[in-house]
């Protein structure tokens, strides 16, 4: 894989884990501007560990990570906040925050020491509210929102942070099918229209196949990466789960329970 200028995220020979305990290794992939990429794999395959490593919430074991052509280790925390924004699985510490207040916190890397918003900050907050259909909820408090609404608020906050790269940890868990599709479509729109590089972990393999530009499969062996079509052709989904329980249907791009 050549180190190309167009790559927003470039990961090479990465090993991740805790201390000396390797969770996953030999991870190689690269994402261009405006690409939506899903990270899939069975529980414990290292999806969240990979995400935490990419956000610098934990350190890598070996290998290289480049974000916008800089090694992930080089920017300061304040500089990294302008390159990468995150959506984590954790709830906000204060459920008393209002939707608009929470989204506006995304502007912190750009505001002065007291955190006052400039007119252009306010425009970005408005745009984020609009893009995620939150205008009517703007004065609601977080504890009044449904899971799907709260998830939209957090993605809108990441959008307001206005970074070229956004990573999300399981943004669709706990949601029903309709809201899963809604969130993923909004993420796709954000990637394609606003030219954001978006990487997220998920268990929704069939939805990822339909909506994502790229997929990274953490299978504990060679960690294949490519477009959904390539991965289907190379029969990588077949080996994801033990074949006596479920089988992959190439035509529909979904899994079926074996009778």
């Amino acid at each position: 894989m050549a180190h190309d200028k167009k790559h927003s995220v470039w990961v090479q020979g990465l090993s991740i884990g805790y201390g000396t305990k390797v969770v996953a290794s030999k991870i190689d992939f690269s994402l261009a501007e405006g690409e939506l990429c899903a990270v899939i794999g069975v529980n414990g395959a290292g999806k969240s560990t990979l995400l935490r490593t990419l956000c610098r919430l934990q350190s890598k074991i070996s290998g290289n990570i480049f974000m916008m052509d800089h090694p992930l280790e080089s920017p300061t925390a304040a500089q990294l906040a302008k390159i990468l924004s995150v959506v984590l699985t954790e709830q906000p510490a204060s459920k008393n925050l209002r939707v608009q207040e929470l989204i506006a916190l995304g502007r912190q890397p750009y505001t002065n020491w007291v955190g006052s918003l400039t007119p252009s900050d306010k425009i970005l907050v408005q745009d984020s509210l609009k893009a995620f259909l939150l205008e009517e909820l703007r004065h609601q408090k977080c504890h009044e929102l449904s899971d799907g609404q709260l998830q939209r608020v957090f993605i809108a906050r990441a959008m307001a942070q206005d970074t070229p790269i956004i990573v999300l940890d399981e943004p669709t868990t706990h949601l029903d099918l309709y809201h899963k599709v809604q969130i993923l479509k909004m993420m796709q729109q954000l990637a394609h229209q606003n030219k954001k590089t978006i990487l997220f972990t998920t268990h929704e393999i069939d939805l990822a196949i339909q909506l994502c530009d790229k997929i990274l499969i953490l299978d504990g062996r060679e960690n294949p990466f490519g477009t959904p079509e390539e991965l289907i052709q190379q029969k990588h989904f077949e080996h994801l789960f033990p074949s006596e329980m479920v089988e992959f249907d190439e035509k529909t791009g979904s899994f079926k329970v074996k009778k």
Partner: peptide, 15 residues
């Protein structure tokens, strides 16, 4: 204000 989101989010905001 950043701490209202939790430590990990605060860190991701450059705090």
């Amino acid at each position: 204000n950043a701490f209202l989101l939790g430590d990990n989010y605060a860190r991701s905001l450059g705090i």
